[in-house]
Amino acid sequence: MLARLIKSEPVYLFFRSPAAMLAAIVAILVLGGAAFAPFLASTDPYDLSSFSLMDGLLPPLWEGGDPRFLLGTDDQGRDMVSAILFGARLSLTIGLMAMAVASVLGVGLGLAAGYFGGRFDAIVMRIADIQLALPAILTALLIDGISRGVLPPAIHQDLRVAVLTLAIALSLWVNFARTARASVFVERNKDYVQAAMIMGQHPLRVMLRHILPNIMGPLLVIMTVDLASAILLEATLSFLGIGLPADSPSLGTLIRIGMQFLLSGEWWILWVPTLFLVALVVSINVLGDFLRDVFNPRLR
């Protein structure tokens, strides 16, 4: 099993692509850093008592900073390394959850729409049309706006992560639904699906056991690309001041805070989280591109 995996085409191509390998290393490092942030970070950036204003605005080590703070501190005296690790943790959590919700919802609807066709398909696709007329950022902003109107402020604060996740997920499901549906249309006329239908297998079994494994390639690509979109979307919403607040900063919030220092000399407060975010998203997108090439060799 393992031997075959190592000899398989994707793995072979992976080890021939320096870009994909580099991206995978960066992604794994960031993922590991985010997962183990509580153990790696010297301070807890959410705990105001763990840092002091006395350490505020210290530059990175190589610019003559304090040895305790490798990448310097912000105006509150927060260690930048700790801030970006915890920020990435929050960004990735929201991104992954949103991607998971969007893929389950989108793939489910897309599978069913493609399989059953007819009226159900028409309804799902019209909803997708409406969703397309209201692009991702707009949908996310709108859901956030509605939740502000509907929920009392205190609860809204508590549910921020959930609302943000849902908002991002709802703006991304269409991608999954359209891709899944298009693939199902191709697959369902193939003989192996027809054979299962002739046998009288349950539609759920046909969809999940027969069709789904055969359309995983394109879905995997969308998952990767949409994880990148979800992280960007979260950062954008936080940047617009609508996502997460300053006391639990995600990468986007950190960048928004850093914007205040654009004109003063403390460049690291802005550029450290910015570069970290860009490196993370670039590496995910490189991997997505690699997967796309693997699953669609004609473009190679």
């Binding site: 870009a19 990148a228 960007l232 950062a235 954008t236 940047f239 617009l240 986007g252 960048i255 914007m259 654009l262 802005l270 910015t274 975010l277 860009v278 998203v281 670039v282 995910i284 997108n285 490189v286 591109d289």
Partner: peptide
């Protein structure tokens, strides 16, 4: 490569 980095940078960062 440039465009890959391009799609990975959030619009607001490009603006900044």
């Amino acid at each position: 490569l440039t465009t890959l980095v391009g799609v990975s940078i959030p619009t607001f960062v490009i603006g900044i």
